[in-house]
Every structure is written in structure tokens, then in C-alpha cells.
Write a protein that binds this DNA or RNA. Structure first.
Lengths: 233, 233
DNA sequence: CGATCTGTTGATGCCTGTCAAGAGGGGTGG
DNA sequence: CCACCCCTCTTGACAGGCATCAACAGATCG
């Protein structure tokens, strides 16, 4: 059963792993020519590498090139909230003020570009198209945060999981109905305001109802309509 | 007991009520000279007036002049989430895309300025200081949404209430330790992802513990340290 | 091949939601 | 001006969903 869910050897993660040799928290920097006329450096991060710590001064913004990252906020007693999962093309820290309220960590091996925030600001001052792009991106981020407020405030565990699966299917440009979740169940739980156990239970329940099929980090959507119905709205 | 919590006759709401004569959903428009060089009209709204319906095309942005408003999102089965409470100086709809995902309603009598979004965009293109202000405002809104994600995802009912009281004390420039909540308990509940009953219970519990004193919409903070401790972080 | 980590499942408890009823105020109409 | 109605707020009893605690299986890695 589920033999069609084996991870393909062409995922590319193996290659990334080879690049990062300094271990779990390893960071390697290199020069990168430019992007939209702005200087940037390339950052490579290994699994669980902390690229930005919570309350760090917001000197830099990041653009994800490959891999997956999470933004994290920790409470003093250890409770954790994940603000967002970042995929290639996503930005982090564009709309920061003086300091980052969320940290950023690599879920798995990842590559990003790092920009000086003040240079982005300066470029936005000179280039009104770029300024518009910044506003549009902020609007999208805000919209997704508002969707999460609704989800965390008013939705049940199964609704949150269903929405999450649909979101992931949409964002990880999955050609087929099969999603590979790069993050752990604990990450999913902290993203959705649940516990690891509840995430597992909801997933297995959906599997029992033949809505999805699960094989570790691979999830196949068997009945998209039923999943959308669970997600509500 | 609590005679010091009587609402003062100088609240100003009485005057507002006199202005709005067209009833609960009344809207009156008038010309307003300008703001930052941008044409705007003045909108007066009575209690529970719907100024923007959910999924309305996002043609306009609003600046609150007086009163209090709420942004609302409704699910098909009636569950309601309040996105934010807006006070004088707050904007609504600046960072909208094609349509508003949240509606906007007046909590009580309110006055706002209404701007054409395209004219704000055009002004931002010409004026980089204004563009910067827009970015800063977006950043602040995003930050507050992120704080709510943390609250709704990982905080208990009492923590949410405590944070809410502190937030209100901070935003309604209360000179003393006494807050007047313009919104109903149901609004508070839908803002915090709780029920009316839970909000009441937490408030009375805090009153029993001599942290606050309650008289209808008036809340006096008796022990700010204890409240801050309850709020965590 | 053993240690460790992640994922899964089960038993139990608690926080908060649900349902219900009553109290108190404010507005309206007689 | 007063009585009535309605709405909001409050409190109680109970239930349910999710968290907590615990144990185990499987995978990964040294």
C-alpha cells in the first residue's frame, strides 16, 4: 500500500545537503551579483539553522531561493507559535520595524538571498514600481495573517488541518495530488495552534475516511472535494 | 461600590448620536477639503452601521476620526471573527488587494474620512515620504496581526483577556487606570476567539482577585502588575 | 546494531463551549 | 412619567473537544 508515495530521488534535497557541510546550524555566505539592482549575499542553511533570532535587530531581509523555512516565536514558558512557512519566492523581514518579532529557522536545507533592509528602502524610494511591489507583498502577507487569525480563532482542529493541506498543495507547486510536507508534525501543530498528537489524529482520521493517504511526510489527496468541504468556506 | 466608575457626561457620544439621525444603519456623506493633498469625503456612521461589507470591492480606504469600529469576517455557518478594533487615527483598507476580506462596522457612532484607494496609490507614487508612511503602517498592522496569531494559537482565555485589557488601556488614551470599552462582550469574544460567557467569567474572576473592577462597560485596573503578569511575556 | 528522534495510538482530564435561566438597564410607547 | 420590552451581561450546570500523559513502533544516524 502507498508505494506510489515513495520520495523521488530527484527531490534535490540530497544536493543541498551536500552543500552544507558545517552541520545542523551551519551558515555559509557568498557574494551574489545583484537583484533589482540591489546588492545581496547568498546564505545557505542546514536543518534547524537559526538565520534570525527572535528580537534580532531587523537589519536584513531575506528572499527564499530553495528549501523551506519557518518563522518562530517562543514564549517564556516554552510555548511556540510558528508564524509562517516560507517557500521559494517568499520574503522574510520586508515589513519589519526596528527588530524582528519572529525568528527564522530552516526547516530543511535551504538557500536564500540576504538584503540590507536600508538598501531596499532606498531602492523603493527611487523606484515606484518596486515600492508598489512592496505594498502588494505586504498586502498579501497581511491577508494570509488575517486568514490565520480566523483559523486559529474560530476553526476546529480538523478544519485547520484540512486548510493546511490545501494551502500546502497550493504552495508547493505539486504537479499531482501528492504533497511532500518538509516540516515535522510538531511544526504543523505549532503553526495551527494544536498539539502534535491532535495533528496525527486528524490526519489518520482523514485517512480512515479515505480523504487522504499518508506515508510519513508524503500525503496524497484522494478526495479533494471532501477535503475542501472539511476546510469550510 | 464602584461609584467612581460612572460614565462621565462629557464622553462626547451624546453629541455624536445627535448628528446621526438616520438610525442604526445611517450613513451621511459630506465634502471634506483635503488631507495630504488627497480628496476625501466625510462619513458619519451610527451604531452597527455597515460601512464596508465583506468581499466588497476595495475601492476606498478609511481613516477613523472619532468613535470605534470593528472589522468583521463571517463564516457561512455564522461563526464570526473580528479582525481589529479601529480607533481615531487608525486606517482601514490601505493594504487591500482587489476586495476587502473583512467588512467594517461601527461599534458606536463614528466619523471617518473616506479616500479613493487609487488616489492614495497615485499619491504614494509621487511622494516617497507618504510611501514610507504607508510601509510603516503596513508593518505595524502586520505586527499586531502576528501578535494576535500568537494569542489565538497559544494563549489561554485569561491571558487573552489580560492582553486585551492592556491593549485597550494603551490605545484608548486613558489618562487614568480606568478604561471604557466601547464594544460589547460579544465583540470582545469574537475578537479573542472566545465566547461571551467565557469573557464574562474571566472578567469576574479578575474582579474577585481584585485585579480589576467592573461596572458595565467601564473597567478599572486595580493591579496593573498582576494584570501584566497574567498577560504573560 | 543500539540510541535517539519522530510519528502514532490510547487513556484520562481539563479548559472552554453549549445550553439555559435570571438580572439589570435603557429605550419606547402609552 | 412610568411600565413594559428587549437587549446585554452574568452565572450556573453540563458536555465535548482538545491537551496531557504515557507507551510503543518505525526510521534515521552514528
Amino acid at each position: 500500500m502507498l508505494t506510489d508515495l515513495q520520495p523521488s530521488p530527484t527531490t534535490g534535497n540530497a544536493a543541498l545537503l551536500r552543500v552544507v557541510e558545517s552541520g545542523p546550524a551551519g551558515l555559509v555566505k557568498a557574494r551574489c551579483p545583484e537583484f533589482a539592482g540591489i546588492r545581496a549575499s547568498v546564505v545557505r542553511a542546514g536543518r534547524d539553522a537559526v538565520l534570525v533570532a527572535q528580537a534580532d535587530p531587523a537589519d536584513y531581509s531575506f528572499l527564499v531561493i530553495s528549501g523551506c523555512l519557518r518563522t518562530v516565536r517562543l514564549m517564556s514558558d516554552g510555548r511556540r507559535q510558528i508564524g509562517a512557512f516560507l517557500f521559494p519566492g517568499d520574503f522574510f523581514g520586508l515589513e519589519a520595524l526596528n527588530e524582528h518579532t519572529f525568528g527564522m529557522e530552516a526547516v530543511g536545507p535551504a538557500i536564500l538571498r540576504r538584503y540590507l533592509r536600508c538598501s531596499l528602502e532606498a531602492y523603493a524610494d527611487r523606484n515606484m514600481d518596486f515600492a508598489r511591489r512592496l505594498r502588494t507583498m505586504s498586502a498579501k502577507r497581511l491577508r494570509s495573517e488575517q486568514a490565520r487569525v480566523l483559523a486559529l480563532g474560530r476553526m476546529t482542529a480538523s478544519e485547520r488541518i484540512a486548510r493546511f493541506l490545501l494551502e500546502m498543495a497550493h504552495r508547493t507547486d505539486a504537479s499531482g495530488p501528492c504533497i511532500e510536507l518538509p516540516m515535522s508534525r510538531a511544526d504543523v501543530a505549532d503553526y495551527l495552534g494544536l498539539t502534535t498528537e491532535t495533528v496525527c489524529r486528524m490526519l489518520t482520521q482523514m485517512q480512515r475516511e479515505a480523504i487522504i493517504a499518508i506515508n510519513r511526510s508524503l500525503i496524497a489527496i484522494k478526495d479533494g472535494d471532501a477535503l475542501a468541504a472539511l476546510a469550510g468556506e
